[in-house]
């Protein structure tokens, strides 16, 4: 018996982009990258892919990557394949461009239902663009699955799941049964690098693409519950007082004295 694992991923703007590297399109209320750098796979989603691969390292499993959107960069969404995932399914439609969390979860649920009944769904804990941490919970609700969030370890024997859930001062060990949905955090560790062979194989693999019509989704049903009315870069007119000395050691001394003067120590 082979486990059927789905990992949901999102293509996002590189979170390392400084404010000078993007502008805001007031028409669409969206952030547009201005520098040449390309989008990346959401970091926590890579952690989720890694969690799936660690299960596959020791248990027979098929890993299917699913993503919702419109303008996919193939190198980005194929990265999980290069890391070792098996299939890629893109839920792609002009109506899928600007979805709120509720609508995104609706589309993902429809796509996953079309694929069958997976044993395990893994998602990143949140996406680095809007940090909503909502879609996985909605997806679980729509599919009627138990959802455990912010995992640093996910183990399964094919029937039950053992999860280490990150807490503020350690972790909680949690048990539940399959099928289930788990969100994964960076505490799981650095995701593996794609191998050269993996990159070659991923390049040849064609994604399966489903449109709104393929999923029997009425675009009207995707109208947002939450709308963005303004998006802006906050102004900062803050001035720092730089403390300098004869050398670095002297500057350190002066910093302590200045802080003392201000009653900060």
């Amino acid at each position: 018996m082979s486990l059927d694992i789905i990992v949901c991923v999102k293509q996002v703007m590189d979170p390392e982009t400084p404010p000078s590297g993007f502008k805001i399109d007031q028409e669409t209320k969206q952030v547009v990258q201005t520098t040449g750098s390309s989008p990346v796979l959401n970091g926590f989603d890579e952690n989720a892919v890694e969690a799936a691969l660690r299960i596959k390292d020791i248990t027979p499993a098929t890993i299917t990557i699913v993503s919702v959107g419109k303008d996919f960069v193939m190198d980005v969404v194929k990265k999980p394949l290069a890391m070792g995932a098996d299939n890629l399914v893109l839920l792609s439609d002009t109506h899928f461009e600007t979805l709120d969390s509720f609508a995104t979860a609706t589309v993902l649920a429809a796509g996953i239902r079309k694929l069958g009944e997976p044993d395990l769904i893994l998602c990143g804990r949140q996406a680095s663009d809007w940090d909503n941490a909502q879609v996985p919970l909605g997806l679980a609700e729509f599919l009627g699955l138990t959802c455990v969030t912010v995992a640093q370890k996910v183990d399964t024997d094919g029937t039950s799941l053992t999860i280490e859930q990150v807490s503020s001062d350690g972790y909680q060990e949690i048990m539940t049964t399959l099928p289930a949905l788990v969100t994964v955090s960076n505490e799981i560790g650095v995701p593996r690098y794609p191998t050269l062979r993996g990159i070659m194989a991923a390049g040849r693999k064609e994604p399966v693409i489903y449109s709104a019509a393929d999923l029997n989704i009425d675009p009207e049903s995707l109208s947002p519950k939450v709308v963005v009315t303004d998006l802006y870069v906050p102004e900062s007119n803050h001035e720092v007082e730089i403390i300098s000395g004869e050398d670095d050691a002297d500057a350190g001394r002066k910093l302590a004295l200045r802080m003392r003067e201000e009653g900060l120590i």
Binding site: I24, K29, D129, S223, T229, D230, P234
Partner: peptide
């Protein structure tokens, strides 16, 4: 949003 690099104003639609 975007880790704090930008700010968004959001509101609701519908009656829920």
């Amino acid at each position: 949003v975007y880790g704090g690099s930008a700010m968004a104003t959001v509101t609701f639609s519908g009656d829920g």
